[in-house]
Amino acid sequence: MPSGYKLTRRAFLKLGGSALVGTVLGASGVRLWGQFKQPRAQVAILKAPQYTMHLEEILRRGLLLYPGFVQRLRGARVLLKPNLIEYYDAHRVNTHPLFVAGVIAALRSLGAGEIIVGEGPGHRRDTEALLELSGLQDVLEQMRVPFVDLNLDATAPVPLVANHTGLGQLHLPRTVLQADMVISLPKLKTHHWAGVTLSMKNLFGVVPGARYGWPKNLLHWRGIANSVVDITLAVRPAFAIVDGIEGMEGDGPLYGDTVHAGVVIMGESLSAVDATATRVMGFYPEHINYLVMMLAHGGTLAPGQIQQLGERLEDVRLNFRVLDYLRGLKSPLPWINRWVLGEW
């Protein structure tokens, strides 16, 4: 090789440095452009210290921040989808029954028509046991609200517009399809595979186990993120209200520890609600695959595109513990988490 072309160590470092700076600038530009394209969304954060103290009124006040939604709510047949996955005495796994009761009371006070609570528990076939052990059965009986086991409901096929799972269509429960609006009521939790489980991941529970197995096994094999996005786009929930009064940190979604977060997070854009809830937990939503995937489907993640209603995010932000291999969730650099996970 002619000596004129010899790459010195200094030149190599300069070249490498320039390439790195160029890549970072390019990636930042793409991100900024991506954020600019995201639709505007509103997310309300409300302080709610306990499950018993004025919860109905707090929820009602939050819902009234969305006048368009409240107008559509009047007379509507509403399906509430809480998170009821397993029951353990020692772990706050599920959306609290009193939270579900508060939502029902608030929706009724705003003129909702028929309200149904539906869930297809993801792991266990014994839904009756879960309802009884969790206390949800008592609440629903007291409030005269029917429960539908979505695992065993009659189904109808829904074409998958994005088809990330490659399934082409998804059979969904008729109770879901016949509702005027579906409202996701997740719990604020970490998730040992997905990072966080919030209003979108909660929708795994609408998939009928009788067809797709437990724990909705066919969909897990098609990828959790792919499935979450496909289900969200097929169900198109009208609203999400996150039970963040008690959240779960560490080894979620089943065996983590309780965090008294004292917040309720709600809104019409599920991706924006989940992004905000993720930030409340002290993580960066840009690390959550299914949230990033939603950007291609009209989702909103960027803080600049989310109008915060109610409390300021800074005032309620916490620092949820995560499992060691998910510590990248707390890094502002999106690729750090993938690097920690060994994907880069």
């Binding site: 076939r125 040992h192 186990g209 797709y212 197995g213 437990w214 096994n217 066919l218 897990h220 094999w221």
Partner: peptide, 24 residues
């Protein structure tokens, strides 16, 4: 490493082509 099981054992799955579970 997350789960204590022998993942090489063949049982039966809920839907063919997926992982083996106790009930099926």
């Amino acid at each position: 490493a997350m789960v204590r099981l022998n993942a090489h054992l063949s049982g039966w799955s809920w839907n063919e082509g997926t992982f083996s579970w106790v009930e099926p």
